[in-house]
Simulated scan of single mutants.
Amino acid sequence: MNEAFFALPEEKRQRILNAALEAFAKHEYKKASTDDIAAKAGISKGLLFYYFHNKKELYLYLLEYANEAVRRAAQEANLREETDFFEMLEKGARAKTGILEQNPYLLDFTVRSFYSSQEEVSQAVAASYQQKVGSAFPDYFSHIDFSKFREGADPAYLFRMLTWMTDGYMHEARQRGIPVDSGTVMEEFRRWSQIFRRMVYREEETGGAPGGKPEEPAQEKGADTE
């Protein structure tokens, strides 16, 4: 892309990015109109392609922009201070949803791009996500206290499962035309985390009873049970 884009005032750069995010969030890649993007951003189409040589380059930059925004939010949340696997995941999810709240189209764009298929950008998008998922665990979880896990549990695979569930939940909501807000996503994420916590953590880490539920006090023999 043209370095002249980065020389623009912040407000103008953000206006262009927001217009592009809105277009690609609402439409599949091939149906998103660069004419609409330019008009929404308040620039000519020729100028848009001066900054970004073509539509694909603009789209892939948006993907990089979204990934960087999430990475920066995670960094600012000081995730490395948290040693519990599930607490760190929730802290990271809150940081991510905070970024998404700042730009309502960023969430829809990331969900739509994740399920991109048979389009000009699909192969590049798939490669980007594979790289992101592959590097996320060693990058963010190296400091976690894995001694809390039961023998045989696979934290890396569990992380991928939670990622799939979150992305799948948002995709299903979008397919059904149901608005997805960060509060609802976080509520569901906490439910899934609690279920998995009881499944994979040692008993002493989940309240001392199998399944993570506190043990009921034993009834004394002959005690009134009514």
Score class of each variant (00 low, 15 high):
8 L>D: 14
160 R>A: 10
87 E>L: 05
190 R>H: 11
169 Y>L: 15
69 A>D: 12
20 A>T: 01
110 T>P: 08
25 A>P: 00
117 S>D: 11
118 Q>D: 13
23 A>N: 00
130 Q>F: 08
191 R>I: 11
163 T>Q: 13
92 G>P: 02
58 L>F: 08
60 L>E: 08
214 P>C: 01
113 S>N: 14
57 E>R: 12
197 R>E: 13
29 Y>F: 15
171 H>S: 09
11 E>V: 11
208 G>V: 15
179 P>D: 11
142 S>V: 11
21 L>M: 03
130 Q>K: 10
72 R>P: 09
119 E>G: 00
113 S>R: 08
161 M>F: 09
42 G>N: 08
210 P>T: 06
159 F>I: 07
140 Y>K: 03
177 G>M: 13
151 E>T: 02
97 T>Y: 12
66 A>G: 05
3 E>R: 12
51 Y>A: 01
100 L>F: 12
202 R>G: 13
112 R>P: 00
124 A>P: 05
65 Y>R: 13
114 F>S: 15
108 D>I: 01
122 S>D: 07
44 S>G: 12
107 L>H: 07
200 V>A: 14
80 R>H: 11
3 E>G: 06
198 R>T: 12
53 H>E: 09
96 K>V: 13
182 S>W: 03
222 G>C: 02
129 Y>I: 09
13 R>F: 10
94 R>C: 05
81 E>K: 15
134 G>M: 08
121 V>K: 01
5 F>S: 11
224 D>H: 02
81 E>W: 06
86 F>V: 04
164 W>I: 10
226 E>F: 00
170 M>I: 11
44 S>V: 04
173 A>T: 07
139 D>S: 04
54 N>M: 04
51 Y>R: 00
179 P>Q: 10
219 Q>A: 08
121 V>A: 03
172 E>S: 13
158 L>M: 09
73 A>Y: 04
83 T>W: 12
81 E>S: 14
113 S>D: 11
101 E>Q: 11
222 G>E: 03
116 S>L: 07
145 D>W: 07
223 A>R: 13
154 D>L: 01
145 D>L: 08
68 E>Q: 13
177 G>K: 15
3 E>I: 15
90 E>S: 06
45 K>Q: 05
218 A>C: 09
175 Q>Y: 06
135 S>I: 04
201 Y>W: 14
3 E>V: 14
133 V>Y: 03
37 I>F: 06
213 K>C: 07
